[in-house]
Simulated scan of single mutants.
Amino acid sequence: MIAVHRVNVWVHDQQAACAFWTEKVEFELRADATFPELGGFRWLTVGPPGGGGPELVLMAIPEPPVVTREQSDLIRTVTSQGLGGAIFLATDDVRRDHALLTARGVEFTEEPEARPYGLDAGFRDPSGNQVRLTQSRHDGGTA
């Protein structure tokens, strides 16, 4: 069986991203390793508590010589504007988790709203990545 294990998320600052995901969203730190032999490359992953579910790889935006300056700037711009795709988080209660995350300082760009597929709210991480908090109809959501 093939399953999603990790998803790469470009971040501007790995330390700020790690703090956001572990302190505000309350994901757990899964891996944090720095490799001097790879120029100080840092492998940093977080995921839902309890070790289940896919991990987010909080990947620093690459710099030259790995990519060109133009490519690095493009990744940074696209990420900042929330155009690099979205992270979809599932919950069984959007309103509860919206309140919890708001109390922890997460700024929502969209309040919980009924959609054809359930309840949905949106926020961004410190790098600008879009995050959707979704409660599917089959999980108790109403539309």
Rank of each mutant, 00 (worst) to 15 (best):
D97K: 12
Q71H: 13
V94N: 05
D92Y: 14
E111A: 15
P49F: 07
T142K: 14
F20S: 02
L29C: 01
D32M: 07
H5F: 00
V67I: 06
S80N: 12
L89P: 00
L56C: 10
C18Y: 10
V106Y: 04
D32S: 10
G118C: 03
G40M: 03
G53Y: 06
V131A: 05
S80P: 08
E113I: 14
G40K: 05
V131G: 05
P112K: 03
R42C: 05
L56K: 12
R124Y: 04
V7M: 11
V7R: 00
Q14N: 01
T142G: 10
V46D: 04
S80G: 14
E63G: 09
V46F: 02
N129V: 07
D73F: 09
E23S: 11
E113F: 08
V46Y: 03
Y117M: 08
T77M: 12
E55K: 08
A114F: 05
R96G: 09
A114M: 09
P62C: 11
V131R: 07
G105L: 07
L100G: 08
F88C: 11
R137W: 11
S127R: 04
H12C: 10
L58T: 06
V67S: 04
T34V: 15
A60Y: 07
L83V: 05
T22H: 03
G105F: 09
G85D: 02
A60M: 10
R42A: 04
Q71V: 15
E28K: 11
R137K: 15
W10G: 10
H5G: 00
D120I: 12
L101I: 02
R115I: 10
P54C: 09
F27T: 02
F20C: 01
G53T: 06
A103G: 09
A33N: 11
I2A: 12
L133I: 05
A103S: 12
A16N: 09
C18L: 15
G39V: 03
L38G: 05
D73E: 10
